[in-house]
């Protein structure tokens, strides 16, 4: 593999609480190339916080530290907010779980994509409009002209999520962080959205971090998977081998899922062990 797009070493996110410091992310390390990297875990495992930390979106009093947080060789750890803002969107983008909360309700879809693009490219209005329409068709919206002039409440959830992706991809970022991008969507729409992201990654050579709680989906969609537990990566595995996972936590998660092709009387229940808190991949 060539030099990684993103290199993370010993990333930590901590929050002060009444009863001492709470560490949401406890030393996460990984490299991201031009690939689909899945990050899975349960709520509270620190998977979303990892994405937010990379984007510099951890709000005070939360603190981020790392031995290394490099984007294409340059450090992006704790940059001043002004420089981080220039970076966000232009070079790293994020797609959130629910498009309803991420789109501005009083601006048309087209205006929002144009704004995102102009902010980062400095291009004029005409070029931005063309780019916006191009992006809308890139995410397989059949009638881009009509959607361009629509307001967010006039489009469906799946359409909204595609618009979000179009908006995030307009400035041609190197890395896309998608935080549960499909969990608010119905299955038929979900697959379409995934297909679009998939295509963009393969065609544009983008790096994708796909944060999700859905193991099966990640196994099918991603190239490589990080399994997080209590703020640490307990296992790293090629997606196609996920069902041969070795860590008891990963196995437990997989077994606790009901399966269509494998009826059981009772579902296996995950027995958590304290020792997992200190299991780090490779150790």
């Amino acid at each position: 593999m060539s030099a990684p797009l993103l290199s993370v070493r010993n990333l930590r996110v901590s929050f002060p609480t009444r009863s001492g410091t709470f560490e949401a992310v406890r030393g996460v390390s990984f490299d991201l190339g031009r690939e689909r990297l899945g990050v899975v875990g349960e709520s509270g495992s620190g998977k979303s916080m990892t994405g937010r930390a990379i984007l510099g979106l951890v709000r005070p009093p939360g603190k981020v530290s790392a031995d290394r947080l490099d984007l294409n060789g340059e450090t992006i750890l704790n940059l001043p907010e002004r420089r981080m803002r220039a970076l966000r969107g232009a070079r790293i983008s994020m797609v959130m779980q629910d498009p309803k909360f991420s789109l501005n309700p009083v601006m048309t879809v087209g205006q929002q994509i144009m704004e995102a693009y102009r902010l980062h490219s400095g291009q004029g209005g005409k070029a931005a409009r063309e780019k916006a329409l191009e992006m809308l068709s890139a995410v397989q919206i059949r009638d881009p002209e009509r959607v361009f002039d629509a307001y967010p409440h006039e489009v469906s959830g799946g359409m909204g999520q595609r618009i979000m992706i179009a908006m995030m991809l307009a400035p041609d970022p190197e890395i896309l962080i998608a935080d549960e991008p499909t969990s608010a969507l119905d299955v038929s729409v979900r697959n379409e959205v995934l297909r679009i992201m998939d295509k963009l990654v393969t065609e544009r050579g983008m790096g994708l971090i796909f944060v999700s709680h859905d193991l099966n989906l990640v196994a099918q969609f991603c190239d490589r998977v990080l399994i997080m537990y209590a703020g640490q990566v307990v296992e790293e595995i090629a997606a196609k081998d996920l069902h041969q996972a070795r860590h008891p936590y990963t196995q437990g998660l997989l077994e606790s899922l009901p399966r269509l092709d494998h009826p059981v009387e009772r579902l296996a229940v995950l027995q958590r062990q304290d020792s997992w808190r200190n299991d780090v991949k490779g150790a």
């Binding site: 349960e42 709680h213 437990g252 998660l253 606790s256 899922l257 009901p258 009772r266 579902l267 229940v269």
Partner: peptide
């Protein structure tokens, strides 16, 4: 979460 889902589904059964 899926592990909790399993517990609740078992309880319901």
């Amino acid at each position: 979460d899926v592990s909790v889902q399993a517990e609740i589904l078992n309880l319901l059964s």
